[in-house]
């Protein structure tokens, strides 16, 4: 465990808390892509099936349970809560997210640390997580104004994987750890946020409302 890793996981947790606060206090999920949230449920379920096969960890296990529970809660709110579901921008959430799943599954089938059920699912979840933000970014681009909580949510969600990159660099030098699958996927994941980061920081510095061109 190093500071980058801890900060990364806390940032990830904070992003989810921000989203839950937005949904619960404003009773609105405007600007949030249900498709991205659906993909996160799939990511966490496929990655954390190892809860049943691996020994429990005081650090990882609570995080895994929280990520599973919160992602399912968010999707539940967006689909079934009688007030929240009416605020969902269904018509702007147009990305064909199902088309992301098959290529990730094929990739996981061929590129994995070991050809076992758990390892292939783990690889699938790493690949899918890398691209799961795409529907959300497309939705933001079609929104004329992005509220602060939504902007902060997406920023924290992107920052988390960027911090993992620093953690991997640290571990490479300090612990000789080499992990090509998460490294490359994490790099792609972070790169997808580059545009968003640019406009987020620009609007923050100019004290303006965030808007993507």
């Amino acid at each position: 465990m190093n500071a980058f890793r801890l900060l990364a996981d806390l940032t990830h947790l904070l992003s989810i808390i921000i989203l839950l606060v937005k949904i619960r206090t404003t009773k609105s999920c405007a600007g949030i892509s249900l498709k991205t949230q659906d993909l996160y449920v799939l990511v966490f379920i496929s990655r954390y099936l190892d809860l049943f096969t691996r020994p429990l960890s005081l650090y990882n296990t609570p995080f895994k349970l929280v990520f599973l529970a919160t992602s399912i809660t968010i999707v539940y709110y967006m689909r079934y809560h009688k007030v929240v579901k009416q605020t969902y921008n269904k018509d702007s959430d147009t990305f064909k997210h199902y088309f992301l799943i098959l290529p990730c599954a094929v990739l996981a089938f061929f590129i994995n640390p070991k050809f076992t059920f758990i390892e292939v699912l783990w690889s699938f979840s790493i690949y899918l997580e890398a691209v799961a933000i795409l529907p959300q970014l497309v939705l933001l681009q079609s929104s004329s104004n992005i509220d602060n909580l939504t902007g902060n949510y997406v920023f924290m969600l992107g920052a988390y994987r960027a911090l993992y990159l620093l953690n991997w660099i640290y571990r490479f030098f300090a612990e000789d750890v080499v992990r090509w699958i998460p490294w490359i996927a994490g790099l792609v994941q972070t790169a997808l946020y580059a545009d968003f980061f640019y406009y987020y920081i620009k609007s923050w510095r100019n004290n303006e409302r965030l808007k993507l061109p």
Binding site: N60, P113, K114, W122
Partner: peptide, 10 residues
């Protein structure tokens, strides 16, 4: 670099 270490991240 052991197998065990592989899944020590979230």
């Amino acid at each position: 670099v052991g197998e065990k270490k592989f899944h020590d991240e979230l």
